[in-house]
């Protein structure tokens, strides 16, 4: 019942998490709606990556509940869950011994339900969706540029048609021009596929540009969460204002 009526695709309730006695998150609450593009920004160590990894169960909370489509993460089969959640990290983590094609079809191959032909044709569609030529499918990751690798990582994350896409500073290691292109690309993909995106970044401009909602974190606490335009016009005093200053300076000039 709850599943059908719930438009909140991800819910984190009263999460506590500490590492070696150091508290990262305390009484953390967050709800993400279906189809939302949530960008999460904060300084390093603020807990944003921890939140991301809580969603696909790579990190378990000390206490609190995580609900995915209304179901408690603790009751879910984590392997199946992760296969339905796209995962993109800054280092990309492409498998160096596999061709681009096999990298992209990694999860469908694991699931093993579709025919080889179906997987192959979707791999071709995906590589074009992320703006690359199908010729690259036969290459190995070491033969690609940084931007191309990140695109392949994105295609790989989308291969099993996930509802949710988790992205951890995905464009942090590419050059400025490539980053702009990739930002356009992911925005287009979000509109096209309607996938829910949880996007961690430390670049305020990126957060404001991409998100349908921006979440600003500091020391494990949510400082503000709202649409980019509302945050720009009504930044909460203190941390958020300081953070936005640099952004506004840049966008005015």
């Amino acid at each position: 019942m709850e599943k059908q009526t719930c438009d909140q695709c991800i819910r984190l309730e009263n999460i506590f998490k500490a590492y070696e006695g150091k508290e990262i998150l305390s009484d953390f609450n967050l709800a993400i709606r279906r189809g939302e593009f949530l960008t999460v920004i904060g300084s390093s160590g603020c807990g944003k990556t921890t939140v991301l990894k809580l969603i696909n169960g790579l990190i378990r909370p000390d206490s609190g509940r995580i609900l995915i489509n209304g179901q408690d993460l603790a009751d879910l089969d984590l392997i199946r869950l992760r296969r339905n959640i796209g995962y993109v990290i800054q280092e990309v983590g492409l498998f160096p011994h596999m061709t681009v094609a096999r990298n992209i079809s990694y999860v469908p191959d694991l699931i093993g339900k579709e025919t080889k032909g179906d997987i192959r044709s979707r791999t071709r569609d995906l590589i074009q969706l992320v703006g690359l030529e199908p010729e690259l499918l036969l290459r190995y990751p070491s033969e690609l540029s940084g931007g191309q690798r990140q695109r392949v990582g994105l295609a790989r994350a989308l291969a099993a048609s996930p509802d949710i896409l988790l992205m951890d500073e995905p464009f942090g290691a590419v050059d400025e021009i490539t980053r702009k292109q990739l930002q356009q690309e992911i925005k287009g993909i979000h509109q096209k596929l309607g996938v829910t995106i949880f996007f961690v970044t430390h670049d305020i401009r990126e957060a404001m540009k991409l998100g349908t909602r921006v979440l600003i974190m500091d020391q494990g606490k949510i400082m503000q969460e709202d649409t980019p335009s509302y945050v720009r016009d009504h930044p909460r005093e203190g941390f958020v204002q300081d953070l936005l200053e640099s952004y506004l300076d840049n966008s005015c000039s």
Partner: peptide, 18 residues
């Protein structure tokens, strides 16, 4: 092995044996 490679494999839902 590069930790990010293992991390990606785990995050995408591979079992430890896979």
């Amino acid at each position: 092995i590069e930790p990010s490679v293992i991390e990606a494999a785990r995050g995408m839902g591979s079992t430890p044996l896979e």
